[in-house]
Design a protein around this nucleic acid. Structure first.
Lengths: 120, 120
DNA sequence: GTCAAACTACGATGTCCTTCGTACAATGCA
DNA sequence: TGCATTGTACGAAGGACATCGTAGTTTGAC
């Protein structure tokens, strides 16, 4: 009855290895406003994990699922199940190792633009 | 016979003003490998202008035109006519003013990845 | 065992994007 | 004037993408 489960409360999700993360993929992932919003919120509390339902996004649940999957498959976030929730965290270590300074510059740029446009 | 010309050898092209440049647009523009390649080449000699034909791209001429237009409309490059050629230059000042450090971080990340993958 | 909560899978839809070929326009030079 | 160079416009094809609704799965709690 539980074909995809392996252990108690643990379904594994496919993540790219660090070396498989591509800059173009990261940029594409962050070029969508909804996904950029998610990443900014995750970065605000970088040591914490947040469930998908934590985010207040202007799209439906299934679209939300889609965006989180894109972020995971591009290597921007890591997703793990915890009970019925799916916890999300930035892959800061991996991204910083691959592209030092990039994530900080992107987040600073996003923050700057949000302040400038009053979209915060 | 020259409906779009205004002065000798001068046809103007629409560019977004600095304040109109959006981070999402810049990231989208750079998420394409061909366009990222163009921007890297432009940045290698940041004070110089290069004609479209300068670049050795793996696409046809009309596709090249398309990519340069995307870069211009997103505010990443500035294009000016010079004779029959169209000169291209990075909008470094505008981008640095809007998003300090972003362009450098992006170029460094692209260079790092190219070195890692042997795509240089 | 039942039920609600959280998330997924699937299919549909409309839009945007990349790419191309072909035909055309603008410029400078012989 | 004729011609080569450089780039554009237009349309088309094929794929990718964002969005949604509905139905289903997984989990924990009662």
């Amino acid at each position: 009855m539980t074909p995809a489960t392996t252990a108690a409360g643990t379904r594994d999700l496919p993540h790219p290895a660090r070396e498989e993360i591509r800059l173009e993929g990261v940029l594409h992932a962050l070029s969508d406003p909804v996904r950029l919003r998610i990443v900014r919120d995750l970065a605000a509390d970088s040591d914490e994990l947040f469930a998908c339902s934590y985010f207040d996004l202007p799209v439906t649940k299934s679209t939300t699922t889609h965006h989180f999957r894109v972020l995971r498959e591009c290597g921007v976030i890591r997703q793990t199940y915890r009970g019925t929730a799916k916890m999300n965290g930035l892959r800061r270590q991996d991204l910083d190792a691959l592209f030092p300074g990039l994530l900080d510059a992107l987040l600073a740029a996003a923050g700057r633009q949000a302040a400038r446009l009053g979209t915060d």
